[in-house]
Amino acid sequence: MLSIKNLHANIEGKEILKGINLEVNAGEVHAIMGPNGSGKSSLASVLAGRENYEVTEGEVWLDGKNLLDMKPEERAREGVFLAFQYPVEIPGVSNINFLRTALSEIRIHRNLPPLSAKEFLKMTKEKQELVEFEAKLANRSLNQGFSGGEKKRNEVFQLAMLDPKLSILDETDSGLDIDALRIVSNGINKLRSADNAFVLITHYQRLLEYIVPDFVHVLYNGQIVRSGTKELALELEEKGYDWLKEELQGQESINTK
């Protein structure tokens, strides 16, 4: 589904991604872990098309389509969904009105007929229940006055509504208490299917106890330096990242000798 080949990207002239390679197939869940500043959120931003990143090399394909040629809204309509680490507040824009606009754009792109108000409301109700999102939040202004946890849960609610192919969750677990984490994880588990894929960006193994990944990758210094299964996450949890850094630096110094 998603194929990233030798992806390099800069922000303000500084190279942040230094040759990422990643293959994600339908039905899979990949976790990307790594220390602060390793490029995890940058990778999410580049995939979503945030404009202050400049791609200098490499390719990204989504089901055979060149993602890097598309505007952010086109990527979204093609089925890329980014659950933001810090969702913005938009005063006065009702959550529901916003979702209706978004969904209708996506449906037009997918050649689906527009939903009637009744169908839309029915779907809203179903998805709210599925991801345990309160109706009162759905009817408020977009993220305005939401707590950190409510914002994250709104991201998952939107994910449920828009039904993307590829969901990238950028530290969706950060700032969640244990109950909220369980609700968010349950929601995502219910949304998993053989046709979609998830990339979870996280610092902590904790999230992966709830959403079990098929693959775990470690991002360090703009590259994926280690890939494995869920056991890798446990190992990181136990040992931290320092051993990995040391090991890598050791390799580098050997290489440069």
Binding site: L103, E105, I106
Partner: peptide, 27 residues
């Protein structure tokens, strides 16, 4: 904010419509 516009872009809404939504919300 560009962040607001990008957020809406990321949900499939183009810049023009994003501005319209934000401005109508404001007013």
């Amino acid at each position: 904010g560009e962040d607001q516009v990008f957020y809406l872009n990321q949900r499939g809404i183009d810049a023009e419509q994003a501005i319209a939504l934000i401005v109508n919300g404001y007013a």
